[in-house]
Design a protein around this nucleic acid. Structure first.
Lengths: 356, 356
DNA sequence: CATAGTACCGTAAACGTTTACGGTGATTGA
DNA sequence: TCAATCACCGTAAACGTTTACGGTACTATG
């Protein structure tokens, strides 16, 4: 009888089979109990859960994935060795933390998919998708034209992007309110009498650079001013980039009286570069940038926009889950697309005022 | 006949079966061809590879893992939202890049396993292992006593750690040569006449702090000096930590004349803090630290130890593979354990000399 | 020609799950 | 009492691979 076979605990049993045998019930019931199915006696479920804990049983992910066609993994794609990922400090770690708090509720795991600098990002993505690695993806470093979007849309892989793109396949995205930041900053600086205002942008083709520059230009023109192409500084989005900008800026024969920083960490390098030349933010030049954990230690204190990275991560996760059939009902009114407005924290770095 | 069945390309075929049908051969042969098995005609193999490329076929990872009991994935465990992972900047991204270059040769993929700050790292590791997620692991943020080691050793999961620990289960590790750095730095400073030398250590229980402090003490005692407990500053391993140290240091009634920095990025914060008080490295205090991409922009230039992060990643990957049966023959003489010596790059920050 | 050997290929089992389906015994309703 | 309903559980198929095994046709050898 099957009964006997199960009662005698054979040696080489593994996985769910071993657990079922230990409890002397069928593997089907064990599976149902563990997965919270309704058609199982609560008494039985309790026994199963206890035995699972006792024997340290955790379902094998490969078996489960193979059967369900789902992995319970969400991938966050990043590129190693590049400066793109180097938001200077722990930017992504904080965002991850927010994402995780949402995913934990659904037993989803977040992993960072690390695309080597030696491999083409598009190829890498193709491989990841074809292997059925993740149920959904989060993309950052959004390019102005991003072929990854079309690829994923064609395969019907749920994904969300941190950053807009001209390539629009209807996917959800979150982005920072670069228009708002440009508008507020320009208005503020013009009100203080500034006419020669410099702006920065990332050196590569990420979309945010275009958005920020465009809006800065519009805001200036609304005041009857123009954006001098000579005052657009592009750099890597890290401290070194900020330093380079300071050097370039100081070398101009006709210096700008104010500068807008689009990235977070460049403020640190900028300060250092200016400091070396005895140029003091807030006294000799007005600076408006973005707050970061490190910028708290800048002196004079930075006037800049403050972002809650963790909340951004949470919103990112919810926007993604809202598009995944299995989870969408949990987030009926999640913002599929949203510009994330940051608050301006006033410091001393833009105190420099010009006579009218 | 089977022949007919295959010739007519049925609709719902997926995966390897579809490919086999398209080529009118068996799935077994397709699999062998793709996996480089010898018992397949080279002509056939060529056809298979071409068809695979054409149809964009990539083996399903779940099916493959289930059968082979192997995932072709190596996990790098990190903790999100914590300061531990915040080596300030792109430290890990550069290390990853080195790891990847080695893994690419073996068709292994590296992913970062992100342990939420809300979950216990030991629990997280348990889950990852039980699910059979990765074939091997890389651990960082090595604690002085690290229970993760014993757990992995018991399960016979190959792993390598970045950093030594008192918990020794025979696993391979790489570590920076903190003894060497302490010894060289102390000797150098003492030779310049310094007697009151401060040292830093990370605020938490990572092992490197103990090693560094111990060796600093020994080196001082060899010169007939002592390490003043009041001159041991602990901080988070980032810029903010460096700033705090500067503040604490300046508040001492009897200031140290020199300071040794164990972490990379704290130099930035330290400089800023000292600068605010008009204290200049190299003129008013001697500073020896560690080089990083950002430290190139410090002024006066930092005297510090320089590490090739990418090479470290390469060594880390090789040390791990050397312990994995499937790959060990590729790395017969890989260093299973190694302290990674860094070169001292001389700058101006330790120019401050005391009269004899 | 008979035999052995070789090169290549097809068949089918196995990996660990989940889940549709059917079955059993108990309960309910008339 | 009989039928219908219900709660619960066991059975077995299926997911997409890899690989041991056996089979076939061809070649070499005597």
């Amino acid at each position: 009888m099957g009964r006997e076979k199960r009662t005698v605990e054979a040696a080489g049993m593994t996985g769910i089979r071993r657990l079922a045998q230990h409890l002397d019930i069928s593997i089907g019931t064990v599976s149902r109990a563990l997965n919270g199915r309704p058609d199982v006696n609560e008494e039985t479920r309790k026994r199963v859960l206890e035995a699972a804990a006792e024997l340290g049983y955790v379902p094998n992910q490969s078996g489960r994935s193979l059967r369900q066609g789902t992995t319970n993994i969400i991938g966050f794609m990043m590129q190693t060795g590049t400066e793109i990922t180097g938001q200077g400090d722990t930017f992504f770690m904080s965002v991850f933390d927010g994402v995780q708090t949402v995913f934990a509720r659904h037993h989803l795991d977040l992993v960072a998919l690390l695309c080597s600098s030696e491999e083409d990002p598009d190829d890498y993505l193709r491989r990841v998708v074809a292997r059925g690695f993740a149920d959904g993806l989060i993309l950052s470093a959004t390019q102005r034209h991003d072929p990854r979007f079309e690829f994923l849309a064609k395969r019907k892989i749920p994904f969300v992007t941190l950053g807009r793109s001209l390539t629009d396949v209807g996917q959800p995205w979150l982005d920072l309110d670069f228009e708002g930041m440009a508008q507020i900053s320009i208005d503020r600086l013009v009100a203080k009498g500034h006419r020669r205002i410099a702006v920065t942008r990332p050196h590569d083709d990420v979309n945010l650079g275009y958005i920020f520059i465009d809006q800065s230009r519009k805001a200036l023109e609304a005041h009857g001013l123009t954006l001098d192409p000579d005052l657009i500084f592009s750099s890597t989005p890290n401290e070194a980039g900020g330093y380079q900008i300071a050097r370039q800026l100081l070398a101009k024969k006709e210096r700008p009286t104010a500068i807008l920083l689009v990235n977070e960490t460049i403020a640190l390098g900028l300060y250092r570069g200016l400091n070396e030349a005895g140029v003091k933010p807030g006294r000799d030049i007005a600076v408006i940038g973005r707050q970061s954990p490190q910028s708290h230690f800048l002196s004079p204190s930075l006037t800049g926009f403050k972002l809650s990275r963790r909340d951004l991560g949470i919103a990112l996760a919810e926007a993604l889950l809202a598009t995944m059939p299995a989870f969408s009902h949990f987030y009926p009114d999640a913002n599929r697309r949203k510009v994330w407005t940051e608050d301006l924290v006033e410091g001393e770095s833009d105190a420099f005022t010009l006579p009218a």
